[in-house]
Design a binder for these strands. Structure first.
Length: 272
DNA sequence: CCCGGAACCTGAAGGC
DNA sequence: TGCCTTCAGGTTCCGG
């Protein structure tokens, strides 16, 4: 599933491919992929525009255009942007962005959760997001401040994009394991040393994920169609029926707020 | 404001 | 063999 490291990888891979390119046509195989404006206006505002930049904010991809507009894409759970899909990925193509020189970006999404939009004011979409966890400004003090008023289970709070932007289900599990903290702990019950460990763990698991070009389980592909390797480095996330790499105890699986959650009961004790 | 659950989707996997 | 249920999870919406 695309989280911060996956979206960062897609951005890095696409950047040299799209920068300076002009959008020559848009194919919408499924109009529902356009969130706003209407499909017709969406096309009209993209046609003939040059892509002047590509950046990431949280799990959003922002294609800056040579107009006042920005094309924003969100892959949600099963979306991928492919530049040259191998035959086995040539299904579920919901849209195609045609560029000059016969280049194309295929938007593949089996589950139809992913969306695109064209907006003038990007703040309307990304304005309420929390801090980027890999930026300098994300300090243990800031994390402590963000958690202090929240009583919900820590794991649920870490997934709140308005608190911290970019963490998803897999990397939240990995960060909590790395920090040795139970996912069900009240978010505001962490001690100072625990906050420090969590802060360090969040940044480490995200950096490792980016180094490994994202995690491929079933539905994430890089623009080339390749898979990422971060999945192989996971210690608890999605490690059903495996044992904890630190202590050898079986890895636990629970449903927390409707999300599959993996952890080690011995290394991440619940002490409340 | 905070919290938690349902809805949106479709394919895979497991039970009977 | 085939039908039915459950599971997967990022985001949004809604009710308490």
């Amino acid at each position: 599933m695309p989280e911060l490291p996956e979206v960062e990888t897609v951005k890095n891979d696409l950047l040299p491919y799209v920068t300076g390119q002009t959008i020559t046509d848009i194919t919408l195989n499924w109009e529902g992929i356009v969130k706003q404006p209407s499909p017709d206006e969406f096309k009209k505002r993209l046609l003939g525009r040059k892509i002047t930049g590509l950046s990431r904010r949280a799990k959003y991809l922002l294609f800056k255009l040579d107009s006042d507009d920005t094309l924003i894409a969100h892959l949600r759970m099963t979306g991928s942007l492919l530049v040259d899909p191998p035959a086995e990925l040539n299904n579920y193509i919901r849209a195609v962005i045609h560029l000059n020189g016969d280049k194309k970006i295929y938007f593949r999404d089996p589950r139809k959760f992913a969306r695109m939009m064209v907006v003038q004011d990007v703040a309307q979409v990304i304005g309420k997001l929390g801090p980027e966890p890999l930026e300098e400004s994300f300090t243990p003090e800031l994390l402590s401040h963000l958690l202090e008023k929240r009583k919900a289970p820590l794991k649920a709070v870490l997934l709140d994009q308005e608190l911290i932007a970019g963490l998803g289900n897999m990397y939240a599990d990995e960060a909590l394991f790395e920090a040795g903290i139970n996912p069900m702990r009240c978010a505001n019950s962490l001690t100072k040393p625990e906050i420090k460990r969590l802060h360090k763990a969040i940044r480490e698991v995200l950096r490792l994920g980016i180094m490994n070009k994202g995690a491929s389980e079933v539905t994430y592909y890089r623009p080339s169609g390749e898979m990422g390797k971060a999945f192989e480095a996971f210690k608890v996330a999605h490690q059903r029926d495996k044992v904890c790499p630190k202590c050898g105890e079986p890895i636990q699986w629970i449903k927390l707020r409707g999300r599959g959650t993996y952890y080690c009961a011995k290394c991440q004790p619940n002490k409340q």
